[in-house]
């Protein structure tokens, strides 16, 4: 199609200008984060608003890693995010599979309830959850965060998984069952390997969401040694409110896992959206 067109040069210039605008808009804040993190302390005030620092240093990064609780926050966040991602994906895969493959009593009601959980303010349950968790004596424990994040993420993850399962022809399981599998075996041997991209996407999605959750973590965690990244960084910010370089270095470090995960899931998300990936 494009070969036939004879596009207007003004349009082309406009298009590339638009592309440049989006790129700069998306990346500039991240660049700035990195820049200040790399600027030596002495130069921050004199060169605070220069586009390029005249000198760079990694001292902010090493200080953050070795002389603060940063590593502990990182570890806590990793535990919580991986735990939540694992359990959410596991349970959502089950639920998504049931929605995709079975007709059963109450299906509509359950789907409707899951949709409702996507609509009301989750803040609404922040107070009751605080009280329940407090009564169970689970305040300041990572377990309570994992449980809460898992529950919150299940509805969306279920719909995501369902669409991945929907993309896998039902005939394949039927064939596997004719070949001698039980349904569960068919799920493990045939459906599961084909859903790996979907599982990956869901895992990454939940990980990213859990990695950045702030409000429930603030509410349920107050002890320093159980803090996750967002909470830790926030207290960090108020504690060291003058040390810009260290804060930004910590910010850059916090960014790394979720960006890695994003690059990892991006491929699968696109695959999932353009379904039919597994046909033939």
């Amino acid at each position: 199609m494009s070969a036939v067109k004879n596009p207007n040069p003004a349009l082309i210039v406009g298009k590339y200008a638009a592309l440049a605008f989006y790129l700069i808009f998306a990346l500039f804040p991240l660049y700035w984060l990195l820049k200040i993190g790399l600027t030596p302390d002495a130069l921050i005030y004199s060169e605070g608003t220069r586009l390029f620092p005249s000198e760079i240093t990694f001292s902010n990064f090493t200080t953050v890693i070795f002389q603060t609780d940063f590593v502990a926050y990182f570890r806590n966040s990793l535990v919580v995010s991986l735990g939540a991602a694992f359990f959410t994906t596991l349970f959502a895969a089950g639920a998504g599979y049931a929605f995709s493959r079975f007709v059963f009593a109450g299906k509509r009601i359950i789907i409707a309830l899951m949709l409702v959980t996507q609509m009301f303010p989750l803040l609404m349950i922040i107070a009751p959850i605080y009280k329940i968790v407090a009564e169970l004596g689970l305040l300041n424990s990572l377990t309570s965060l994992i449980v809460v994040y898992t529950a919150f993420n299940i509805p969306f993850a279920t719909f995501l998984m369902q669409s991945f399962f929907d993309g896998i022809p039902k005939d394949l399981e039927d064939a596997a069952m004719m070949d001698g599998c039980s349904r569960f075996q068919a799920l493990c041997k045939v459906v599961f390997p084909l859903t790996l991209p979907g599982l990956g996407a869901t895992l990454g999605f939940v990980f990213t969401a859990a990695w950045s959750e702030l409000l429930f973590a603030l509410m349920l965690i107050s002890k320093n040694d159980a803090m996750t990244f967002p909470v830790g960084l926030l207290t960090f910010v108020s504690k060291f409110s003058v040390d810009w370089g260290q804060m930004m270095a910590a910010g850059v470090l916090a960014l790394i896992p979720s960006c890695l995960f994003f690059i990892f899931i991006q491929r699968y998300l696109v695959q999932g959206l353009t379904s039919g990936a597994v046909k033939g």
Binding site: P169, L172, D174, A176, M177, V278, G280
Partner: peptide, 18 residues
């Protein structure tokens, strides 16, 4: 259950495991 009926089936979509 299907697995215990000793019947084989050929599907329209072939249903080969990709």
């Amino acid at each position: 259950r299907p697995r215990d009926r000793d019947i084989a089936m050929v599907f329209q979509s072939y249903a080969l495991y990709p």
